[in-house]
Design a protein around this nucleic acid. Sequence first.
DNA 1: TTGATCTGCTTGTCTGACAGTAGGATATTC
DNA 2: GAATATCCTACTGTCAGACAAGCAGATCAA
Lengths: 252, 252
Amino acid sequence: MAPRTVLDEGFVPVEKQKTYELVADHLIAMIGDRRLRPGDALPTEKELATRFRVGRSSVREALRILESKGLIRSLGKGSFVVAPSLNPLSESLLLLFTLREATMRELFEVRKLLEVQTVALAAERRTRADLKRMEQAIRDMDEGIASPHRYIAADLQFHLAIAEATKNRIVARLMHAIRGLLQRALFTIYDIPGSPQRSLEQHRQIFSAILKKDASEARTRMIEHLSRVEHDIRNILGGKAWEQYIRPLDEV
Amino acid sequence: MAPRTVLDEGFVPVEKQKTYELVADHLIAMIGDRRLRPGDALPTEKELATRFRVGRSSVREALRILESKGLIRSLGKGSFVVAPSLNPLSESLLLLFTLREATMRELFEVRKLLEVQTVALAAERRTRADLKRMEQAIRDMDEGIASPHRYIAADLQFHLAIAEATKNRIVARLMHAIRGLLQRALFTIYDIPGSPQRSLEQHRQIFSAILKKDASEARTRMIEHLSRVEHDIRNILGGKAWEQYIRPLDEV
DNA sequence: TTGATCTGCTTGTCTGACAGTAGGATATTC
DNA sequence: GAATATCCTACTGTCAGACAAGCAGATCAA
């Protein structure tokens, strides 16, 4: 082994805090402890600059950081608003696709891993409010079965309700992010004859397991459901798209 | 229902592409199709500005975006380098904590959900190379058991090797991100007498299950392992920290 | 060869400028 | 008086120019 200096680990490159980072951190902290709440408009750039005693360029670079973290949004015209607790995970997941470092197959597999366990937890923890949301989603799906938009939106609601029934916000976020990316693929299988009906039926089975608090059955039903959906998507997309780096655009 | 205009959904606010976004997208695309590869140094700001025919401020704002997405790093002195495929998910996950929208409990639960399934997949798909990595990690853990740093680094290696044995890059990234956040908590339990030894032993059991391609046993062993670790962490941290919004700093 | 000094170049930062535009205030029209 | 047109202001988005600090390579000295 090479000779070792005392306190070897201590010698990391010394970090010079850049002004724009300071500003960004400050703003993030303010959002973190709710001094800036979702919906609030930020002061103008000039005001921020004078308040922080920095140049406008530093403020702007800080704003770009917050923006790309999904914390604020540059509303068409001018002022900024704190985003309504949107999902930073979505962005990163999308980025993986943009960088061609993830395929549909992988994404779907993650979903399966996660959601199978999620539904089991949900079955144990669901409250009456959760059940109500799920029922509503199933109803919406039934009523909107003729409209891809309504149908798929309701589908999303159902799965999100399950995720949220775990009372684990990270799980909910993850599911949200994953579903967002899968959305386009789901549109493609909507057109398979009988597919929406089958999904609806499977949702009912999942729901009934959750209702009974039967985690094990919920798991089984979810596996069935996801396997079928996966099978359908694969059939329609074909192996190429499935294994390639799809760019699932248009957010909802 | 309200009267409905034809093509209702088509009327979304028209998006004006901002210069800095164009520049950022362009650069991201270049990284995406590998025209800029990890390790490459970007041209200087001035050169980018003249090449893209934009002002330096636009370039800088674009760079801030890439930076906060973890695609480039502002190396101490000056020039930029494309980051070595680092993890955008880590950033977002960390952000959730900064914003106090996730607790230790939740994070650990996600890890459990994920890793239990992951180890099962890994048991089915592991190659000889994967096994070698795991063995090496176990050896390192054994030899470094007296040094928290070495021990925990090896621990991380073991779990990452499992994640990568799934051949699913999203799984690997997720695990990496989660572990990064948990790192600090793991340091705290290192000091529990006998804890490292027990972990080591459990790792050996998990490894043997993976070796036998016994997915179900791997799952069981992993549950045992994670439950014990969770139990230890909880005992040390106490319920308060467990349920509070810990900021698990210092990346590794 | 080693060490010191000088000279550009690059980043980080600030300031000033200007076009485009959103929104409110004001004037105009019926 | 209500609806409509017009004007003003202020803010963002963008650029250009300036300057300090620091690094890297070149040059020079020992």
